[in-house]
């Protein structure tokens, strides 16, 4: 059973307006990491909003764990789809970090003892436990985002969606968050969807969905995706540094048989070529 399935989904805000999404189909499996990329305005965030019922398809259907998403079961579905948005300021309700993480749990009637445990463990996972009694609005952007992620982890969802959630973090904070959600995803066999512009983040995902002008441009694996440097640049995207370098080497006639996924792979290949001479 797919954790999430989009079946021929189209969306427009009003009937007299153009489609923001056209005939989008894809699946995310349980325990899988899917990255969604695309230029600004390509429809990525609309997909995220459709996934937890902030918007409903104009045409087509969405299934969460095999159940069609409807206006009737939306509340049930939302406890299975945890979402972290780009701007943490828009998602705080509590006056302390602890209260904020508790909010989602209270809404779901989690018993107090269990609530305390979940708050502790989710804040520890994002390394914000020292800030239990701090006021969220006084935290820096990156710290706020970690608290928002803790709030999502606390409700133990089946799927976590990060909508550009690491865009405002420093490089280390970004790595921490991704390592954390990736670990949780693997341990608990939940689906992870990251909507991002960070190319190195995309390379860590298992599969990639590329959006362009409201349509699915391609669904593939990172190693195949980076072969399309020119085409990706034409739609406002790019490939990581290591792929650019590999392609420049190929142009110079250096025989690279496989697309390198990171620095080490490229250097190993170069070293092998060097040693064979």
């Amino acid at each position: 059973m797919h954790a999430i399935e989009f079946r021929n989904v189209s969306f427009r805000y009003e009937e007299d307006q153009p489609y923001v999404l056209r005939n989008v189909s894809f699946q995310v499996e349980t325990g899988e990491w899917l990255a969604i990329i695309g230029h600004n305005g390509s429809g990525k965030s609309t997909i995220a909003k459709l996934m937890n019922g902030l918007l409903f398809p104009s045409e087509g259907e969405i299934f969460i764990n095999g159940i069609p998403l409807t206006e009737e079961n939306i509340w049930e579905i939302r406890s299975q789809v945890g979402m972290v948005f780009q701007n943490p300021d828009n998602q705080f309700v509590g006056t302390t970090v602890r209260d904020d993480v508790a909010f989602g749990l209270e809404n779901r009637g989690v018993p107090r003892t269990e609530m305390m445990e979940r708050i502790t463990s989710s804040l520890e996972q994002v390394r914000m436990h020292d800030y239990l009694l701090h006021e969220p609005y006084r935290l820096s952007g990156g710290q706020k985002q970690r608290v928002a992620i803790a709030g999502v982890l606390a409700i133990s969802p089946r799927v976590i969606i990060l909508d550009e959630a690491t865009a405002m973090l420093d490089p280390l904070g970004r790595k921490e968050i991704l390592d954390t959600v990736h670990r949780v995803q693997a341990e608990q066999q939940i689906g992870l969807i990251t909507i991002t512009h960070d190319l190195n983040e995309v390379m860590q995902a298992e599969r990639v969905l590329v959006m362009n002008n409201g349509e699915v441009w391609m669904t593939t694996v990172p190693r195949e995706l980076v072969k399309k440097q020119t085409e990706l640049q034409q739609i406002g995207l790019d490939v990581p540094f290591v792929s650019q370098l590999a392609h420049a080497l190929q142009k110079l006639g250096v025989p690279l048989t496989e697309e390198p996924i990171d620095h080490e792979e490229l250097l190993d290949t170069l070293w092998t070529l060097h040693s064979r001479k």
Binding site: G38, H39, N40, Q86, M168, H197, L199, G236, D238
Partner: peptide, 8 residues
Amino acid sequence: AGLDPRGQ
């Protein structure tokens, strides 16, 4: 922040 690679 938040812009695609070309926009950045």
